[in-house]
Amino acid sequence: MSAHAETLNQCGSCASSCHHTAQLTKLGLKIRNWDYTVALAGNPNTGKSTIFNQLTGLHQHVGNWAGKTVTRAEGAFTLNGKKYKLVDLPGTYSLLSTSVDEEIARDFVLFGQPDVTVIVADATRLERNLNLVLQVLEITDRAVVALNLIDEAERNNLTVDERALARDLGVPVVPMAARRGAGVKELLNAIEMVASGQFSARPHRIKYADERLETAVETLAEQLRVEFDNLPNARWVALRLLEGDENIINAIETRTLGKVKEAGAFPSLVESEAR
């Protein structure tokens, strides 16, 4: 048995996490007065929806391709007396381009201010998946990485050192084989730790060794904070502005910056033609 399977088994048999799942109630769609909001982000085809279904008891059917979930799916569960709302975001490779699904995912992570953002990463294609992980960590430090498909990685003779990964990323990393239900308890444990503030993250942040950039970001961020109070991550918005991100520019022009589009409230074609 490889190192990962052992880790999974050890964690699976430990008393504390068993205690936690004993308290898990899958609430399906019944959401009212939740204590915490949890966002579920990740690349397409990483088993995001499997994890969503495992946690909420829903069985949202999702095929094996990119861009299938366009809207946010929502579900709920309770854990140790607290109610959690779980929001499944569209699967994306990035939060930086201009497609609709990325915009929905990004707006929710940034402006929806979830208490925890779970980023599902495919252990067999870690490098590609880390791109999104790092982008999310730029926005929020309340994150957990669900390192899924660890069983597939083993089958391909890949070993992932999740402790090294957790150290580098500065957030909890939970190895999972969600299709078999392995790692779910540990994920719940990590979500609870981050949601309740018991775990304080020191997330990895990209360093841009450029003084001019630093000045520009700080100047713009300051102006943004004055103009839009309650803007969660002004530095990040400033960076997008410097990149010439059209969605953000648009949001500032129309003063809709910071407003999360409601699920279903999709810009109609008439509106987008007018834009």
């Binding site: 490098e127 890949l158 070993t159 050192d161 841009y208 950039l213 990149e243 010439g244």
Partner: peptide
């Protein structure tokens, strides 16, 4: 700038992945 930022993120992703993943046969 977008290119630079994206390249910076991928560079970090590459380094982190290289430290965490070891592949057998």
């Amino acid at each position: 700038l977008h290119d630079k930022l994206t390249e910076a993120i991928y560079a970090d992703a590459g380094q982190i992945a290289a430290r965490a993943v070891s592949s057998g046969e």
